[in-house]
Design a protein around this nucleic acid. Structure first.
Ligand SMILES: [Zn+2]
Length: 502
DNA sequence: TTTGCCGGGAC
DNA sequence: GTCCCGGCAAA
């Protein structure tokens, strides 16, 4: 519902940004004002660099603070999670914050120019070449979206759900036979040495989710894909528009952040989902769910408010109308592009009938069926390909970027609760919306998964080997995750980058 | 009857 | 937040 997938944009004043300077150098600054230009129906942020210098560019937005460092910028944020910006270890071990500029030369290094005022008096301007992981972030006020992304990454680490703590502590599935039958709490520490199998189990669960994320999300505000009977593919009603997770019906629909953490989750908090990747935006066709919701995208550029039903369309709009071409060549397909436009629209959910007046919309039938079954959608795809080849990210492009998986659902059952191995309670907490299950029994109870469950596999006598969920009498998460990995290996052996994490 | 797991309660 | 279990429904 209107609990919204993406939070409405807040004021960007105060947001740390990078602005392009000469020689490809990006200077950190803070947006201190946004001037609106009524005539042009847009606004121009003014960025303060240091104390005096002001950068402004009509019809052009500054880069979010992490932008402008090429691919390296994300690592800056992801690896540190400290909410700080441009704190560069001084050669003598001190931290300096008067960074004049940061330039990403290659993947692992950044060149940092440090203002002498941040060092001893009279020091010359320092140019430091630092490894990425040496660069720490000082306090910064990031844009809401970047905040969201951080949250995402943090939560990403939680994909092991109830097992996550044990993931980090390398211990899981504690035998609890001693306390069997007693509601007395076991000491939470001293879990003893876990079996390798359990460790692997946990890893598998983590990785399965990672794999999913990694494979199904494009680096550019990655689009989720959905698993229908046969494949993971972008789910959209038309024009690659209303994306939503529909894993056998249950899923989420908001984009997730790029997963470039290399699986090194150091934080664990909740599930992956949040404003940008939430299990909560589930579009499921069940008897329970009567209202057909669909997503519209609204431009948040001041005074604009243009709405489209397509993510692509709104991004195109923002790019064309407000931001200008991404680069001189106008090559919008540049994988390294800044995706700045993502900051200038918001995603809203509306009842389908409202959307009918929003252009461009097709029939609503297609919202309830997979795109590959929708002839109208297919036609649209063809047209889109023809019309926008080169400047428009058609689903095929998305496919390349996100490399959606093709997973035969017959090989394993993908039950909704186990989409990410997470405790149902947590799942529900992160799901403000009423979540309906894809396969619900008439009573509303979800249909039992078809895959083996710990109880069946290990038996009551080996309860200690069960996954945590099974121990808690919750929906088992172990075998679906494993099945997913198996499928992944079979179907996408080329994705060694992800598979190596398994 | 067995199994899976939802919902809710204890801690 | 974690952990547990009553009880329901499907298998
Ligand atoms: Zn299990």
């Amino acid at each position: 519902m209107s609990t919204g997938k993406r939070l409405a944009k807040r004021s960007i004043v105060g947001t740390r940004v990078c602005v392009p300077a000469k020689d490809g150098l990006y200077l950190p600054g803070v947006i201190h004002a946004v001037k609106s230009i009524p005539a042009e129906d847009c606004s121009t942020p003014t960025v303060k660099i240091g104390t005096a210098c002001v950068w402004t560019h009509p019809n052009r937005a500054p880069y979010p603070s992490t932008k402008g460092l090429g691919r390296t910028r994300l690592r800056l944020h992801q690896q540190t999670h400290e909410g700080r910006t441009e704190g560069v270890p001084h050669p003598h071990g001190r931290e300096v914050s008067d960074v004049m500029g940061v330039r990403g030369e290659n993947k692992d290094e950044v060149t940092v120019t440090v203002n002498p005022s941040g060092l001893e008096r009279g020091s010359p301007i320092l140019t430091l070449v630092k490894r990425l992981d040496e660069v720490r972030l000082l306090e910064s006020r990031k844009s809401a979206r970047l905040m969201d992304q951080d949250t995402d990454f943090a939560r990403l680490a939680d994909m092991a759900g109830a097992d996550r703590k044990r993931t980090s502590s390398h211990s899981i599935d504690v035998p609890n036979s001693i306390h069997q039958g007693s509601r007395k709490r076991r000491p939470s520490s001293g879990n003893g040495s876990p079996s390798d199998e359990n460790n692997q189990d946990c890893m598998n669960e983590c990785t399965a989710a990672l794999v999913l994320m990694s494979l199904s999300c494009s680096p550019h505000s990655p689009r989720p894909y959905y698993i229908d009977g046969s494949e993971l593919s972008p789910r959209s009603s038309h024009d690659s528009e209303t994306y939503s997770w529909a894993l056998n019906g249950r899923g989420s629909s908001t984009p997730s952040p790029p997963l470039s953490n290399g699986g090194s989750w150091q934080q664990d908090e909740g599930v992956v989902l949040d404003a940008d990747f939430a299990m909560d935006d589930l579009e499921i066709d069940t008897p329970r769910k009567k209202k057909v919701m669909c997503t519209v995208f609204q431009c948040t550029w001041k005074g604009c408010g243009v709405r489209t039903t397509s993510c692509e369309a709104i991004e195109r709009h923002v790019r064309k109308m407000h931001l200008g071409p991404r680069n001189p060549e106008g090559n919008d397909e540049d994988p390294n592009s800044d995706h700045e436009e993502e900051f200038y629209y918001t995603e809203l959910e509306e009842e389908a009938r409202n959307v009918a007046v929003s252009p461009p919309t097709l029939s609503h039938q297609d919202m309830a069926r997979p795109p590959h079954e929708d002839p109208e959608y297919q036609r649209q795809l063809q047209q889109e390909k023809l019309q926008h080849s080169g400047s428009y990210k058609s689903p095929s492009v998305l496919s390349q970027r996100g490399s959606p998986l093709t997973i035969p659902m017959s090989s394993f059952s993908w039950t909704p609760g186990s989409y990410l191995p997470v405790s149902p309670q947590k799942y529900q907490k992160l799901s403000p919306k009423t979540v309906s299950s894809p396969k619900l029994s008439p009573s509303g109870r979800r249909v039992r998964g078809e895959s083996k469950k710990c109880r069946k596999v290990y038996g009551m006598e080996h309860r200690e080997q069960w996954c945590t969920q099974c121990k808690w009498k919750k929906a088992c998460t172990r075998f679906e995750a494993q099945a997913l990995i198996v499928c992944l290996r079979l179907k996408r052996p080329d994705r060694t980058d992800v598979l190596t994490q398994c």
